[in-house]
Design a protein around this nucleic acid. Structure first.
Lengths: 226, 226, 226, 226
DNA sequence: CGATAAACGAGACGGTACGTCGCGTCTTCTG
DNA sequence: CAGAAGACGCGACGTACCGTCTCGTTTATCG
């Protein structure tokens, strides 16, 4: 946020260039520490030491610990696969598309996201830019994917045009976040599948192919139905 | 947590110390500060000063800032009507019962709840007792009410027995929290009504009486349809 | 300077009293560190740690490292013998009195004074209060003693009334300081005796009893000739 | 000191030559800053900025801030008149020669010397080379001049051979320094004249021509007796 | 004459100390 | 004698300076 938006209209900078190749390692170190001890337990010195940097270097790039963390989270986006980033596959049916959205890989990504977000949620109300970052990085892309999936279903006549795709697209993230926050549970694939069949499909007038088994929201087990 | 667990089973007098008369104002001061500057911005000195109390007085009652906040949140339950707290009214239909759950009064209560919870979310991962408190105070009673409502509907044959009431009971809180956290929006009655008709009722095989109009999750307007 | 001048006109302070019994140990710790590593090498944390105090406690009492050091120096005054502090003995002759001023004990005191002052001299121009402290502690009492000694000599008719006692009283400290600063040499008794016989007594019209032997100002040896 | 002794045995240097014409302005900038804020308040960046140079340029020439300052002081020697530097004029009498040593011009030079030395005194104990520099630049030449003056007086039979010229030659600098350090007063000509008549001449067995009037060491006025 | 090597101004770098502030504990004085 | 006021030890925050390094540019010597 801070580091990369400063690019446009730079005067031809003199002196030694800021070594932006260090940014990723610093942010990675910040994420590491964040995941280990949480936001409050995290120390700027810890991050600097782990990144083999000086504290001043960190403060030269980010004006405060909060901004550093915000940027760290903002940079959590999956760098290796920017192409397939949440691009929804077309399986031919809405249910197939929705299930494809909760592939193990996507879940694994989400797990790390959640792990960090849990120790960060308090910043949301105090630092709106953090909110924006979370939205940009984790929420909006996912919701965009859902929107496209639903649009496809509408286009192929599978569901009516009147459904509130905006609401339905939020169900997954909302329930996942809720489970993570209040039950300290990573969103399991089974839970997401259950959510699709028990809630999403009925809401659009479709019937899930199999009897819906119940995994409670607060369930401890991750194996569930089948 | 600490302060009011001494409360149960005291219908008459029993040597209750006069000091505890200060508890409410202290907790109220804590909630005020919490709502203004959030958990991180809040200072024990701030709370003590606002409550015209000494810092030691606070630490005599609660072992840490975190516990104080937890208790403050725990005391946020509606004091005027402890009897009918979340007891679900029986309107004869599931839809009627659900709608009764989002009466304006309940929403107003929830608003204050959310306002505080926003600045508190980060504690959830670091302080499990906070989690427990939130659950006890805000989540479980509400979910219990939903469970009873669904059970009534099952009993009267309105819906099948197989529905995942646990999941459905979480939909309201989860979506409200999600909206509050990421869109900084208090849960409006209209939004909750929409959620009932567009998601909950279809999920249990019922059809809402009127065409479902769409208010997006992220909608700014609070007036909406119908 | 800072700590003890704050006494008058205090409003009846509330709360815990500042534990001024800690002042001496803190200042002593400061003097220790000062003597070991000098002013620039000294760290506030070092002093706090050695005094088993928190850094904030030091900063609550002194507004800066410089002020702390100034007070430490100011408190270097000989506590065991505040009565006889520089009170000049009356030996019956000016020369006897002057010689009595450079007794070994006085020199030993001066040595510690000088040792600290050497690492402190640069503060003099930036911190006038340091100047005042040095004056109060080390210079003025000594000069007062010299003034009284000369007055006695005038009273008993040993020397004329017109002599510039102010100038003569400064000769000892000035030459001692000069030797210490630029030749890194503690003021030896022999040097001071030589100064008395070769300079002070002639300046007041007296003749030293013995041929004046020469110890150069820059002499390395401390035992001297004669 | 450091900069110009590095000249011998240079390998046939390639590349751009070090621009030694910048040395004087850098050192002059250092002296300016030194006089304004003292050694501790002085910053290498300040000096570089004032000299319109890069910090690296300074560190290429001097290994540390201390060395830079030492060299700056060392270069404070009067550049316009290196020939007559302290060469003592022969007026025919010791008193005349001594008075000639405190001509206004010499005093003006000394003033700047003192102004810098005041902010430098602390370095003396930590940096022996600074001591050496001060000695070389300011003390030894002056003392050499005094030594020659006294030798002349001995040669012409004006004073005895046994006088401690070393001690007497230090009186002026010592008292001037003392006055400057502890009374923040530049050495006035009147004060120096008074020192000659009241102390130096009696110490060598001569009598000043006029009744000695008293200007106290700590006097504020600079005009005094005549 | 072009290549090369070093010095230049500017400023980022790792490190360390400064002075401030918050937490949780303690002590003192007051109502 | 309860409690408000606030000092205490501890430790993190954000700033400043030191001495080094890396930029892009300038200037001198060498091939």
């Amino acid at each position: 946020m801070t580091a990369e938006t400063a690019k446009p209209a730079d005067p031809p900078r003199l002196g030694r260039k800021r070594d932006h190749s260090r940014d990723p390692e610093i942010l990675e170190a910040a994420l590491d520490v964040l995941a280990e001890v949480g936001y409050e337990g995290m120390t700027v010195d810890m991050v600097a030491t782990r990144a083999k940097a000086g504290k001043a270097t960190l403060y030269r790039r980010w004006p405060s610990k909060a901004e550093l963390v915000i940027d760290a989270v903002a940079c959590m986006k999956q760098p290796p696969s920017p192409d397939s980033s949440y691009v929804p596959p077309d399986t031919g049916t809405l249910r197939g598309d929705l299930i494809a959205m909760v592939k193990p890989k996507a879940l694994t990504d989400s797990n790390r996201h959640l792990k960090v977000m849990l120790g960060l949620a308090s910043m949301l109300s105090q630092h709106p830019e953090m909110l924006e970052a979370i939205n940009d990085i984790m929420l909006r892309p996912r919701k965009g994917a859902y929107l496209e999936i639903f649009q496809r279903a509408i286009d192929r006549g599978e569901i009516q045009a009147g459904v509130d795709v905006d609401l339905l697209a939020s169900l997954g993230p909302a329930m996942g976040m809720f489970r993570a926050l209040y039950y300290q549970k990573a969103p399991s694939r089974d839970f997401m599948l259950h959510l699709i069949d028990a809630v999403v499909l009925p809401a659009v007038g479709l019937t899930p192919p199999a009897p819906v088994a119940a995994e409670p929201v607060s369930a401890t087990v991750e194996h569930a139905d089948q």
